[in-house]
Design a binder for these strands. Structure first.
Length: 895
RNA sequence: GCUCAAGUGGCGGAAUUGGUAGACGCGCUGGAUUCAAAAUCCAGUUCUUUUAGAGUGUGGGUUCGAUUCCCACCUUGAGUACCA
């Protein structure tokens, strides 16, 4: 019998599930290890070969750590609130719950077929009311907290000091204005097509991250999370995290901290404009001011003569979307207000302009323009012919670096870096400046006008907002007639009048009808895994203290700012409130690369139902259309017959080609709409899960993105067949015996143990697979039969190929599952290689290499070299006078 | 533009602190086995003008010695973008 992966894999997957061999114990004397995958949104299309990459990697780590004697927690769940299920519901009327459940079943099934060692008893779904009860509970914690800037932590709102002179309604207003979750009317990113507001993080280049629909600014009342209070801590605490630099960089970038000064420019006795600048050192070069079109001061300072023009510009820019504004980058627009402000350093009058290159939402919404040292100001000044004054020595027209100060009266000759502080301090004395810090990070807009999300546990009345009591949670999602947002942009929940209206203590309330964003559930799910069935708290203190932090978090880099920033924020709030024991949730983060699809395109003649082969497409005006990769062979030829028999549209079209119809290939993200999806089930069916697991690891470095290709999968499959042959003869008889292993056998095994464990620890899975291949080849050629070699070998291979190793393990007569066995240690003595190649040079010129035993002394090495015939020939008659030997380094001869 | 990552055979990719570049796998070539094929096994496979020379994106530098360190540039990918 040959290696029959199908029955083996089915057998062991069933065994693992039925015996719950991977359930983690909350109590143990063993050291703990928490390995977490970013849990998936259960989409309707199931898994493709790209998804498992990270899951397989984390599974290898889990299995390895278990065998190394750790108490491992490796859970999985589903981020099951989300837009696709809701959009499907809008289209079909089917409740999102139904579709979601169905998709989850499919996902679980596929995950189990990958042989992943999850503790399914801890499975969670964010759309389960037992789960979102606690999401709502945490929301209320944020609602009932404020940030104490002196102690630099958040506290319960009851500890807030309220000024005594306030009236009752002023008090409520004061408290509301300090909450970490608060309501604000702000310009939000409104997406008409999605019928909802989006967070800044969800808008990319003026288009929605999901779907790529246009997004416009629109003022709306929204729940907002005060993440900006945590900006500094979110930056500072990155230092100690074992995360990729690129992720740290993008978080720092996103928070966008910049320090500088707010400087006051007076217009007259009463009116003044504050600007924010990071370059107070260039203040002598500030020759005009620019304010954002939305700036309220505009009404006061616009001259009668300019009013009409200003109003026109203001209207135009208010209608522009972010995308349109960005298009102006090269061609700046603006209007003069008619007013002049006084530069507090020079005392000169400088004109005040408006322009939409100044953003109202950042800093003070006004800038001092220094055209000689800022490119944007330089462009603007050139276009509108404004004064340009150089204040830092440089040959360039527009220089934004630092250097020697010029044209700045008494301060000439100073270094601009030093002058920054001096200028600010000088102005501060006259109350015309103060040091400030600004952030690009905005507070997090937390409401969505959607149905399929967590209801926000808040009641509204004339007096303000009230949080629900803990006992009233969960606030379950009510049924609605339609999943569409209402015409005036309210959530579908607003349609359920009965649910909306609440009477409490004889007073009338209206429920908040918006729901939470998709990120809410994923902000804290790693905590729920610790204690998923707890009805009294989100997780017990005992379990949190035992398991936290997450030791290893594996997921895609696409969550670099969104999920990872929000989760860190919530975690810090929970920390401040004494609910968790660590300041950061995820100790080590690894980003697996994306597995890309190899899309195929066919060329269609524009306006015709005629397709042309790729090599002749250049002759016509054509359009490229995705075509299902299942109809394409390795030579990029299209299987026309099969295509036309499956698709009527193509059956009716004509095809133009010479001998074969060729398609064009392109590497893209794998997606259903691009017809380039490769399903892992097919691979498992053909080669087996163990092969798929090893192949995905063998493909290349984990962090790297790479196109999917099956060429080479046979090499990995061969490895498993060879492994099988190491234990069984062709008639399926076990050929392992109890003979003593040879020294060579031992060396091979121990080299393998060392290399593979080092590689796993450093996430170099591809080289670990190579090492195993080499080992198996060596053992075959050594004709190794010894149980003392072959049994430990199984433990080394097990994390990668759990099914086959488990099967062989059992056949070897082991009573307990391989899961409970200890990973072998290697013995240094067995792997020590006592020869080394020494590089040799003569008079620093000729290069020569000589193989010598490492335990030789300096004198021995010298002797060995001098007696080496080959080497002496190289010297061409010159006899060395001196040999310089530095251990581990080069051997240098002086002739 | 800025930030980060990366550039090595026909391909995916190895190479510890600067020390035999191309491990391992795919593909390809030849051979064994076979009526034949598949499968399996063995040998070879960076390039060239092959007693040798060149070679890790390009050009410099440091070094006895550079894929590795430094400087400049080119290319690709990812993120971000009028943030003052």
């Amino acid at each position: 019998m040959e290696y029959n992966f199908r029955s083996i894999e089915e057998k062991w997957q069933k065994y693992w599930l039925e015996n719950k061999v991977y359930s983690a114990n909350n109590k143990s004397d063993l050291p703990k290890f928490y390995v977490l995958d970013m849990f998936p949104y259960p989409s309707g299309s199931g898994l493709h070969v790209g998804h498992p990459l990270g899951y397989i990697a984390s599974d290898i780590i889990s299995r390895y750590k278990r065998a190394k004697g750790f108490n491992v927690l490796h859970p999985m769940g589903f981020d099951s609130f989300g837009l696709p299920a809701e959009q499907y519901a809008i289209k079909t009327g089917q409740h999102p719950k139904v579709t979601t459940e169905k998709n989850i079943e499919r996902f679980k099934d596929q995950l189990n077929k990958l042989g992943l060692s999850y503790d399914w008893d801890r499975e969670i779904k964010t759309s389960d009311s037992k789960y979102y009860k606690w999401t709502q509970w945490i929301f209320l914690k944020l609602y009932n907290s404020y940030y104490d800037k002196d102690e630099n932590k958040c506290k319960n709102i009851s500890e807030l000091k309220i000024p005594k002179e306030l009236s009752k309604s002023e008090k409520i207003h004061f408290i509301d204005s300090k909450r970490l979750a608060y309501i604000d009317t702000i310009d939000v990113n409104w997406c008409q097509e999605l019928g909802t507001v989006l967070a800044n993080e969800e808008v990319i280049g003026g288009l929605s991250e999901r779907g790529g629909f246009p997004v416009v600014k629109r003022p709306m009342k929204q729940w907002v999370m005060r993440i900006t209070d945590y900006a500094d801590r979110l930056i500072d605490d990155l230092v100690d995290l074992d995360w990729p630099d690129s992720i740290k960089a993008s978080q720092i970038n996103w928070i966008g901290k910049s320090t500088g000064a707010e400087i006051t420019f007076k217009i007259d006795q009463k009116i003044s404009i504050d600007v924010f600048t990071t370059r107070p050192d260039t203040i002598f070069g500030a020759t005009y001011l620019v304010i954002a079109p939305e700036h309220p001061i505009l009404d006061k300072i616009t001259s009668e003569k300019q009013r009409e023009e200003i109003e026109k510009y203001r209207n135009e820019s208010s209608l522009k979307s972010d995308l349109e504004r960005q298009e102006n980058q090269k061609n700046k627009t603006g209007v003069f207000t008619g007013s002049y402000a006084i530069n507090p350093m020079t005392g000169k009058e400088i004109p005040v302009w408006i322009s939409d290159y100044v953003l109202f939402g950042y800093g003070t919404g006004a800038i001092m323009a220094v055209p000689a040292h800022d490119e944007r100001d330089f462009e603007f000044a050139n276009k509108f012919d404004l004064t340009i004054t150089k204040v830092i020595k440089s040959n360039e027209d527009c220089y934004s670096g630092s250097g020697e100060i010029i044209n700045s009266s008494d301060y000439n000759g100073l270094n601009s870096e030093d002058f920054k502080n001096i200028a600010t301090t000088h102005l501060e004395k006259n109350n015309l400046a103060k040091k400030t810090t600004n952030y690009k990070l905005r507070d997090w807009i937390f409401t969505r006008q959607r149905y399929w999300g967590e209801p926000i546990p808040i009641l509204h009345s004339e007096e303000g907002t009230t949080g629900l009591d803990e006992s009233e949670l969960p606030l379950e999602l009510p049924e609605v007639e339609s999943y569409l947002p209402t015409d005036d942009g309210l959530s579908p929940l607003a349609r359920n009048e009965e649910w909306k209206a609440v009477k409490s203590n004889g007073k009338d309330f209206i429920r908040e009808t918006n729901t939470m964003p998709q990120w809410a559930g994923s902000c804290w799910y790693y905590l729920r895994f610790l204690d998923p069935h707890n009805d009294n708290s989100f997780a017990s203190e005992k379990n949190i203290n035992y398991w936290m932090p997450v030791d290893l978090y594996i997921g895609g880099a696409e969550h670099a700012v969104l999920h990872l920033l929000y989760a860190r924020f919530w975690h810090k709030v929970l920390f401040d409130l004494g609910l968790v024991n660590t300041t950061e949730p995820f100790k080590k983060l690894v980003n697996q690369g994306m597995i890309l699809g190899n899309s195929a395109f066919i060329h269609r003649k524009i306006g015709e139902k005629c397709f042309v082969s790729a090599e002749i497409a250049g002759q016509y005006k054509t359009q490229k259309i995705h075509i299902d990769i299942n109809y394409i062979n390795e030579k990029n030829q299209l299987d026309l017959e099969s295509l036309q028999s499956h698709d009527e549209d193509y059956a009716k079209s004509s095809f133009e080609f010479k001998d074969n119809f060729y398609v064009e290939r392109e590497v893209e993200k794998m997606s259903k709409s691009k017809y380039n999806v490769v399903n892992p089930d097919d691979i498992c069916e053909k080669y087996g899960t163990d092969t798929l697991r090893m192949y995905e690891m063998f493909l290349g470095p984990l962090e790297q993105s790479k196109p999917w290709s099956t060429s080479g999968i046979s090499g990995v499959h061969n490895f498993l067949k060879k492994l099988w042959k190491l234990y069984f003869d062709p008639k399926s008889n076990l050929i392992v015996d109890d003979s003593e292993p040879s020294k060579t056998n031992l060396k091979t095994l121990h080299k393998c143990i060392k290399k593979v464990s080092e590689d796993i620890e450093s996430f170099s899975f591809n080289t670990a697979v190579s090492a195993m291949m080499i080992t198996v080849n060596e053992l075959i050629s050594q004709n190794c039969r010894s149980r003392k070699i072959l049994e430990p070998l199984l433990l080394v291979v097990n994390p990668f190929a759990p099914h086959i190793t488990e099967e062989i393990w059992e056949t070897l007569g082991n009573k307990k599952s391989i899961v409970y066995s200890k990973y072998p240690d290697y013995a240094e003595a067995h792997i020590k290689d006592n020869t080394k190649i020494y590089p040799v040079s003569i008079n620093g010129k000729l290069k020569y290499k000589i193989e010598l035993s490492t335990d030789l002394s300096k004198e021995d090495i010298e002797k060995a070299i001098l007696s080496d015939q080959n080497f002496m020939q190289k010297l061409e008659g010159n006899h060395p006078k001196r040999v310089i030997i530095i251990p581990g380094k080069i051997i240098n001869f002086v002739v």
